[in-house]
Design a protein around this nucleic acid. Sequence first.
DNA 1: TATACTTAGTGTAAAAATAACACTTATTAA
DNA 2: TTAATAAGTGTTATTTTTACACTAAGTATA
Lengths: 256, 256
Amino acid sequence: MKNIVRLCIFDTVTRNCKFINKYRMPERHSGVLDVSVDNVIFGFDENILKVLVIERKPFPDEKKGMSAIPGDLVYPKESLDEAAARVLKDLTSLEGLFLKQFHTFGNPNRVKDLKDQEWLTNFRLNPERRVITIAYYSLIKMDEYQLLPSYFAEKAEWVDVLEVPDLAFDHNEIVSKALEALRQGLDKEQIGFELLPEKFTLTQLQNLYEIILNKKFDKRNFRKNIKKMEHVVPLNEKQEGVLHKPAQLFKFEKAV
Amino acid sequence: MKNIVRLCIFDTVTRNCKFINKYRMPERHSGVLDVSVDNVIFGFDENILKVLVIERKPFPDEKKGMSAIPGDLVYPKESLDEAAARVLKDLTSLEGLFLKQFHTFGNPNRVKDLKDQEWLTNFRLNPERRVITIAYYSLIKMDEYQLLPSYFAEKAEWVDVLEVPDLAFDHNEIVSKALEALRQGLDKEQIGFELLPEKFTLTQLQNLYEIILNKKFDKRNFRKNIKKMEHVVPLNEKQEGVLHKPAQLFKFEKAV
DNA sequence: TATACTTAGTGTAAAAATAACACTTATTAA
DNA sequence: TTAATAAGTGTTATTTTTACACTAAGTATA
């Protein structure tokens, strides 16, 4: 126990001193890191796969916000999954959505490299501290979502996944790794279930696959494969309001 | 910039005061986390897949060490990959080995839940702080490795992957997720390359696949598949010192 | 009410991949 | 010379994948 020392933390503004017992780390050890989660939110809209990009609220005396992937520091009492779900809920008011951790980014300069350090305060980040971020991707149905202003986002908007603008930090890299992870998981996870409206046509489903994988499929072969998936079930309903032969509607059935 | 305050850190032992400029986080934000890397090291030995388990050096006044996966806090200036490589090098003196990040574990209680809190100091951890760990797995050829005593490990030993003993924290969970990730990556990554000796027989290669995937293969079909892989190339050499028909030797050729 | 337009929906045959299966060969030791 | 051991090798049946083009159902309009 000889490595525990008593420290006084004195705040020169409030003039308060708080004593703490602190374990003294070997010099080289860290303990000067912040940990955040970032959440790449995918939505599918007819023929385009979109990503949710936010503009941070500018602080009162600042001119403009800055674009980024939604994220926040992890709170002391919550798990990483909970933190990612919280960010998602603040923005969309939706809970229980699909969320998948795919990579952790921790380059020591990922924050400091930023040219305009003023922007950092925009993100409530201390420019002196290193930030490690655990990245998640999540999937939401466009017909369900409703973008909310949140305490960390001035505005949120959907952008085409192939035309993501320049983002803060290494967020462009994070988005492209998320897309890779999404492609990997397409067959394994219940991804169609998460991205399509409740009732959908087989053409919509095929579109989803083609756009995510950036690859064309043969219509007949695709449908043969779908028939084998017992979680895609036909409804006794047809598409309405289209000016051509209406397609049969299908739904997903959750596995038991 | 009004969120930056000047703090004095006063060490009651050395009687020194250090002033720092500190960004004041919103109350709910963290900044009280430690970040570590843990490294599940797989080695393959003829017919067994093994994992490297260390016993921490007991502190002078403590009786026994404790078993765990090798890991360490991340240093301020190094990337996560570098931290994982450093842990690996300290233990084996090998550099440039295969390393893959597979998951980040951050349950808020993964450290505090430990019953015997005394053990924590054994790991140089402050029991008051939450620890998030980025987990890697790595692969080494058993015929190359040489276990070294390191500053954090009293002794290191290989254990059968199916008979891993009880480990500290959530390290058993980490090992089983690592095995899952290894199985996933078996075909994609150059895993055989990393686990077999330089020259190997097709039976050894088949063994490796069967043990990692826990599944039997037909000898002839397996060999047909290997013939398609242009990175597995036959040598003009045969096995020596065996009391049966000697097998042809093969090597891996790195892709261009 | 016929026609033009649009997307939905469907089957078959060839090719490729996978799975199942058993005997002969090369070497060493006794 | 023989016994023991693991190496090495081909064929056939089955399944999966690929390639390919026309008819059907509905809407709008002339």
